[in-house]
Every structure is written in C-alpha cells, then in structure tokens.
Design a protein around this nucleic acid. Structure first.
Lengths: 110, 110
DNA sequence: CCTTCACGCGTAGCGAGTCTACGGATACCC
DNA sequence: GGGTATCCGTAGACTCGCTACGCGTGAAGG
C-alpha cells in the first residue's frame, strides 16, 4: 500500500482500534497489523506522536502502568473521542463514495 | 470533506477523469466538481502542478490550442497512463478494503 | 466606457503530518 | 553474554496539497 495514502485517516484508525477497548501503543500497532492481515505495519514514529496529538485534542486519555517491569502507557477513548470516531466513520463513508465514484473499476462498456 | 484526505489519490483521480477523454485543466476541475456533486472543488494551485507532474512522469501528454482567443492546454492519457490508472484502481480497492475494515460503521451490538 | 465576472494558464511558499533514523530501557531464552 | 521481543520516545527530512498571488482575454451589464 502506498505510504502516504493514510494521510488524514490515521487518527480515525487509532480511534477505531481503541473503540475495541483500551490499549497501549505497542498493542495498538500490533492490533492494526493483525486485523489488516499485515497490510498495516505502522512505525512507532508514526503512531506515538499521533497518540499524543489525540490526547492533546482530548479524544483519548492515558494512564501509566508497569507490567512485567515495563512501563506502559495505556490509552482509552474519551466521550469526545467516541463522538469524533462516529464522525470520522461517516466522513470515511462519504470520502470513499466520492472518490470511489471515479476510481472503482467500472465495467467496460459491452 | 477533510482537505488532506486526498493525499496520494489525486493523481489517480486526474487519470480517471482523463480516461473519459482528453480535457484541459479547467475542464478537469469542472468535471470533478460535476461528477462528485460539488464535493470535489479542487483549486487550480492543486490541479495544475499535479498535471505537470503527471506529464513529467509520462502518464499524460499535452497539446496547446486556442479556443475563442484563449489558450488551452489539453491533456490526454498515454498508454503508460492507462496502465497506471488500472493499477491505481486496484490499489484503491485494496486501500478501502484495508481501512474500511476498521472504519465502516459496524452494527452496534444489540 | 468601464467594471465585473467567467474563462484559462501558471508559480511561490506555507503547513500539516507521516516516515526514517535514532536513542534508551527491561525481560527472557539460548 | 548476546540476541530478540517488548515498550517508550524524539528530531529532522520530506512530500504534496493548499493558500495566495499574478497575468491575460472575452462577454455582459450598468
């Protein structure tokens, strides 16, 4: 998949993963990779700053914990985050409908 | 629609419009606007540089003409362009499938 | 006559956001 | 002791669409 195609959809993606329940950064990356069949393997340098951005925006909250001697920062959706996710989902539908009108393979005229 | 959601899909969009036949820049913008029901109104500063990029890449060819005293640069797909468009269409399908797996509104558990 | 709008081309610079490339630390297995 | 998996993070480069310009013609309307 082209690298920069994600532009503008990453936040929605992260919120969607967190909608399944709280996760820490590393687990989010793994969840994306697993549920996409390996198609989405985002580098940490992409995900961590994005999570901080979402927290600054008030869409997620984070809490530190120590598991097996390792520090974890677990994120979970806020109410605002859930609302934003819903908006992102519908704007995703609108987006695919708009662009898809041009790009979905149309049947060759018979 | 969010502004930067287009990232990485603009080229495909332009190729798709030109797949319907040769057009000049202004007409391409109008076609996008018309076929999308007004959702896609791209500024000239977005489209013109993109067309030059596509021409440099060898996906389109341009010819100048004068219509009603006005200079027009008409673009048309090359063979490479058509091939690229086909690839872009299938990568669009893959893209929407991957991201859609996370973002298409799933039924709320009853 | 002269303003305004649609047509039609173009460039310069900004800005947002993703990626690459680092750095640091702990736990477990061989 | 060394390698691998787990877990966090930052700094800088880079891409590319957008904003804001600039230039010119033709038709319409006051």
């Amino acid at each position: 998949m082209k690298a920069d195609a994600l532009r503008g959809h990453l936040d929605a993606l992260l919120l969607a993963v967190l909608d399944d329940g709280p996760r820490h950064g590393y687990a989010i990356i793994e969840a994306l990779q697993a549920r996409s069949g390996g198609a989405l393997s985002l580098p940490t340098g992409t995900v961590y700053p994005a999570l901080r951005r979402l927290e600054r925006a008030g869409y997620v909250e984070s809490t530190w914990s120590t598991v097996g001697g390792r520090e974890r920062r677990t994120y979970q959706l806020t109410t605002a985050g859930r609302k934003t996710l819903a908006a992102e989902r519908s704007s995703w539908a609108e987006f695919t409908a708009t662009i898809g009108a041009f790009l979905t393979p149309r049947p060759v005229n018979p």
